[in-house]
Every structure is written in C-alpha cells, then in structure tokens.
C-alpha cells in the first residue's frame, strides 16, 4: 500500500510536513493529497499526530518543514483566517463555539467574513438552510453554551458550512456524541460528501469512519503507515501493530 502520489489536481496537497514540539516530532514527514470531492478518513492511535496535521493544514500551526498547497497556492506561514479565506473550514476536537453568542450568531460570524457575502438577507437565508440541514432551527436564538455536546458538534459543522468551503477538516466530530445523535452526525457528513464537498475526517470511532469514507489514511508516531481502501487498510499488519502495540 504505497502512499498515493499527489495528483496535480489535488485540492489540499501537504508534502513532507514536519512539526516539532521541543524534541518531539509530532508530524514527521507526512504527505497527504486530497482530491476534490474525496472523503478521506484519518485515523491513528492517541499521539499519532492527527490533530497536529489538521492544525498544520488549517493554518493553526506553522510547519517546520514541507509545504502545504490549497488549490495550488502555497500556504506555508499564512494565518488561519487566510486558510479559511481559501476555503479551508475546520472543526475542533473539543467544540470551540462562541459560547455566549446565539446559535444563529455562531453561523453568521464566518459567513460575514466572505467577500461574496451580499447583505444580511442572503446570509440569513443561508443560515436558515444550514440550521434546517442540521435540524437545529428551533435553537437558533438560544446561546451556544446551552447546547448538548452532540448539538455543539453539529453547530460547529454548521459554522464550517457557512464558510462555503472547498474542504472540511473535521477533527473527531463523533467524540463524546450520544449514539442517537451520532447516526445523525454521520448522515449529515455523508450528505455533505454526496453534495460534492471535500472532507478529511479524523476520528477514533472506526465503525463510524469506515461507514462513510472510501479512503483511509493511518498515522502512527507522526508518520503515515497506510493509505487506501478502508477494508484493505484495516487488515494491514502495520495498522494492527500500531493499534495493538504489538
């Protein structure tokens, strides 16, 4: 299972990325190319560098080595809001909502940053669509901090949608979500994929991840150890070793 080579059309193209924290290489030479419309699962044991990779690919961290291209544009050293402006939307492992703002305001904030935003009416219409899509319409004027954990994950997904992004980087969207809401969240992500959005999905919930992705990338100790179809990847001895610690 050789790593997929970056095709020239890759929407997000990370090459030989390195990130060090003191003496630790959290990301150690990873290359990951995501094609338009792909739904890629990114898994790995705790401390394998998944979130660091997401942070690098969204501009939250600056790589110590390697390059990141979004839509062919080199993004190394750009601030996170510039990544967002280039269509990279992300969610966080632990939801980071604007807690004392309403659900609606949480959705308005990213939309208002868009150069294409034409007036409050259009944005409000889009927010209403997103709320309906996420089935959160009845909570629009409540404060975000009053939402349940699962609803917060949904709202964070909605906030990312409001950027009208080219790619979603979803960091553990299923973590801590009630099983009933989990199915809804999986279905919303699958629906986004069916609509043609490009998604990178990081999670520990293998059943949920393999249920929606068609490509699975596995990381361990900051490196990529597998990349391919989910069933094939999960049978790989390297992946089994990484998860069992054998």
């Amino acid at each position: 299972m050789a790593s997929q080579l970056a095709a020239p059309t890759a929407l997000v193209d990370a090459r030989a990325l390195i990130k060090r924290f003191g003496g630790i290489r959290a990301v150690d030479g990873i290359s990951l190319a995501v094609q338009p419309g792909e739904l890629v699962g990114l898994i790995g044991p705790n401390g394998s560098g998944k979130t660091t990779l997401i942070n690098l690919m969204s501009g939250a961290l600056v790589p110590d080595g390697g390059t990141i291209r979004v839509g062919g544009v080199v993004m190394n050293g750009k601030a996170a809001h510039v990544f967002a402006g280039h269509g990279v939307a992300r969610t966080f492992q632990i939801p980071r909502l604007f807690r004392r703002m309403t659900v609606l305001e949480n959705l308005l904030a990213p939309a208002l940053t868009r150069k294409s935003a034409h007036g409050h009416g259009t944005i409000a219409l889009r927010a209403a669509e997103v709320l309906t899509f996420l089935r959160l319409s009845h909570l629009a004027h409540g404060e975000a901090r009053a939402l349940s954990g699962g609803q917060q994950k949904l709202l964070e997904l909605g906030r990312a949608m409001m950027l009208e992004p080219r790619v979603f980087l979803l960091d553990e969207p299923f973590a801590g979500v009630h099983p009933k809401l989990l199915g809804e969240l999986v279905e919303r992500i699958a629906e986004l994929s069916r609509r043609g959005y490009t998604i990178v999905l990081v999670d520990h919930n293998l059943d949920a991840v393999r249920g929606v992705v068609r490509r699975l990338v596995v990381m361990a100790r900051g490196r990529q150890i597998a990349d391919g179809a989910p069933d094939e990847v999960l049978r790989s001895p390297d992946v089994i070793d990484a998860y069992t610690g054998a």
């Binding site: 939250a60 809001h81 966080f92 904030a109 940053t113 950027l163």
Partner: peptide, 8 residues
Amino acid sequence: DAAEACGI
C-alpha cells in the same frame, strides 16, 4: 482560535 478558523 475559533474566530481565526472562521476567517476572522
């Protein structure tokens, strides 16, 4: 950080 991620 979340504000930056939202493009602000």
